[in-house]
Write a protein that binds this DNA or RNA. Structure first.
Lengths: 244, 244
DNA sequence: GTCAATAAGTTGTATGATGAATTTACTCTA
DNA sequence: TAGAGTAAATTCATCATACAACTTATTGAC
């Protein structure tokens, strides 16, 4: 077995297939691939997610069923659409529109407040440990000058897992990474990646983790609210800035 | 029945996976399985189509992406819908399993707490009016001896609308009516439809509406929590009862 | 430069094994 | 006999390996 690390999000509940599927789906819908572009090969994805080829193939089969990709034998898997075949209202966030991001973020706030509270009630020792491990990874990413993007999301997923209710992870994966300040929203982004800024985030994360660890429901909820309120206000600022 | 039968599309075009997928899909959409029915096991399907488990599993993965079936480890693969593209059934709740209902209800609690709070902040006068109208409809349904089912759900949707964030309605619709105690869960249901019980619900609803009307965020949140906590405990009781 | 043969890379399928969750059957007890 | 507890059988989830089929890049001869 290879180590339980790798690219993005793994450890947790739900099936591996659904995790990989959700992640790939978000990646595609988030326009991180352009139409016609080729996905990494199955072998590469196997590495990236640290799962077997079986899992990758089933996830891709689901993407195919959604009409997002098309596989060509001998050649590769290609993106043929980046729009959800959204029928009656799907939770698709338009990462280009700030207002859409704010809507999603409010929704996510709802989920995460309860998530933090439930996690404080129910976390297992193992889940507590995982939480701090994610915290540490975030720290390492800062020091290494790497993107904290995945580490941030992984931390929030770990909280969701600590509720022992797999639905919370599902919704979070569905909403994708819409909370996390993206450089994809052009915003002079220097500030967003500055070390002091990231360390503030890290401190907020620690606050949340500590409250969950102490089984302090109220504290966890409050710390999470503070954390997300920060993101929300930053987005609101963006919205004002762009319309002004 | 070995060999390439089982009905329709086989040899000829495309991959084996797409063949098997198309055939299974047609079978399900053609209502040859009823909702909740179990598909043949992977081993049986392997025999039936004379293909490997890999192919069967990928085909089933696609059916899952289409929201037609749901796989339960250790149990089997079950049909959960026989309608095509009736929405990207993601957060499909298995109404047959009480545990699944509880999971969904916890999720819904998260949404509705925030929803009530935001509604208290932002409701327009028109939305306030709508809220009381729904309340009234619920009342009328009780007196008429009709089902309060739709009225109940409509009330909650009205709150979601009062947040002025359309996502809240989307999620609520997605989760469906899973909060509302269903007679579909066999439960001697007489109690559930009794007038005193319904009037208690109605009183709780009024409490919520009043708090939103008064722009009392905390109050709205608390009233909603009380309301949903009731449903949750009723389900928990069911769970204990059925396992005993 | 052209073209055919070859090599390397990628998806499609098959097979066997192990783990985890659930259901069913059975045994033992009171 | 009834019931509880356990053992065994099912069934999906995942991993690992192997080979076939197809595409693309490379090579070598002319």
């Amino acid at each position: 077995m290879a180590g339980p690390e790798g690219g993005t999000t793994d450890t947790g509940k739900g099936t591996l297939v659904s995790s990989v599927f959700a992640d790939l789906r978000n990646t595609i819908l988030g326009s991180r691939y352009s139409i016609g572009e080729k996905l990494p090969s199955e072998a590469q994805l196997t590495e990236q997610y640290s799962v077997s080829r079986t899992v990758i193939r089933e996830a891709i089969a689901q993407l195919r069923a959604d009409g997002l990709v098309q596989a060509r034998q001998g050649s590769g898997v290609f993106v043929i659409s980046n729009q959800a075949a959204s029928g009656p209202g799907f939770l698709q966030v338009d990462a280009q529109r700030v207002s859409s991001m704010i809507e999603a973020l409010e929704l996510r706030t709802a989920i995460e407040l309860e998530s933090a509270s439930l996690a404080a009630q129910r976390r297992s020792p193992a889940q507590e440990e995982t939480l701090y491990e994610r915290l540490h990874e975030f720290s390492r990413a800062i020091q290494a000058g790497l993107s904290t993007f995945d580490a941030d999301f992984a931390f929030h997923l770990a909280i969701a897992d600590a509720t022992n209710n797999p639905r919370f992870r599902e919704v979070l994966e569905m909403l994708g990474r819409s909370v996390i300040p993206r450089t994809s929203l052009q915003t002079g982004n220097d500030e967003k990646t500055s070390v002091p800024y990231l360390e503030k985030i890290q401190a907020e994360h620690r606050e949340i983790a500590d409250a969950i660890s102490a089984r302090n429901e109220e504290g966890a909820r409050d710390a999470m609210r503070t954390h997300l309120r920060g993101s929300l206000s930053r987005y609101r600022e963006l919205l004002r800035g762009s319309s002004a």
